[in-house]
Design a protein around this nucleic acid. Structure first.
Lengths: 104, 104
DNA sequence: CCAATACATAAGCATGAACTTATGTGAATG
DNA sequence: CATTCACATAAGTTCATGCTTATGTATTGG
């Protein structure tokens, strides 16, 4: 049940901050730490949680590990959200039709 | 930071099941328990968490309390998701334009 | 009113999650 | 090829979370 991993991962404000930072552009773990008052192991653990939720993916580049947003996690949230489109407020109702076209 | 409450609330599978059940139609806490192997206090506590996340809202009706999906929580998720639309997979890309029309 | 019903709250306990310090691993650099 | 650098993993601690049993509160029917 990937939704569990996804929502749990996003339930932590530090991890959401990390994710948001990565959404601004891929970077390695050290760069992510800059200005974030977080220890190196803590960052590594957070990235591990985000990776298992498929919100983030890694790519080793020499002795750096580059992290970037993984669309898979976001797609899962979109699919979960779609299930409850009947309850979306009117302002967002226009989304309905488009969401219905989403295959898979 | 309501996102914290929302994602934490959805990080529990029992609460997602409760939410899904309510999405099928409003009902009271006793009706929600049916077929769910969950104690009455546990249900009450879960509903409290969902309510504080604005995923669910209540309305007292006599000695029953009717629960229903609160669109506010879902709207928050949609707004959060919109921030990362650049990373959505191509299949969902059509959503972009519509989401951009979402005011607020 | 008084008992029963529907639900909320309190308190305690067991597990999990997020941090810490310490150490391991894999790659480049001198 | 040994040291340094970037990161991961291990182990321990503290606090949060989800459950339990027990009790409180609001509403209604007899």
């Amino acid at each position: 049940m990937i939704e569990n991993a996804i929502f749990k991962a996003l339930g932590d404000p530090t991890r959401r901050a990390i994710f948001e930072k990565l959404a601004g552009g891929a970077m390695n773990a050290s760069a992510l730490r800059e200005g974030m008052a977080i220890s190196q192991p803590a960052m590594s653990q957070h990235l591990s949680v985000l990776r298992e939720a498929r919100l983030v993916r890694e790519e080793r580049q020499g002795r750096f590990v580059n992290y970037e947003v993984d669309p898979e996690g976001l797609a899962h949230i979109a699919r979960w959200l779609r299930k409850y489109r009947d309850y979306w407020p009117a302002r967002v109702a226009a989304l309905k039709d488009v969401l219905e076209d989403m295959d898979e």
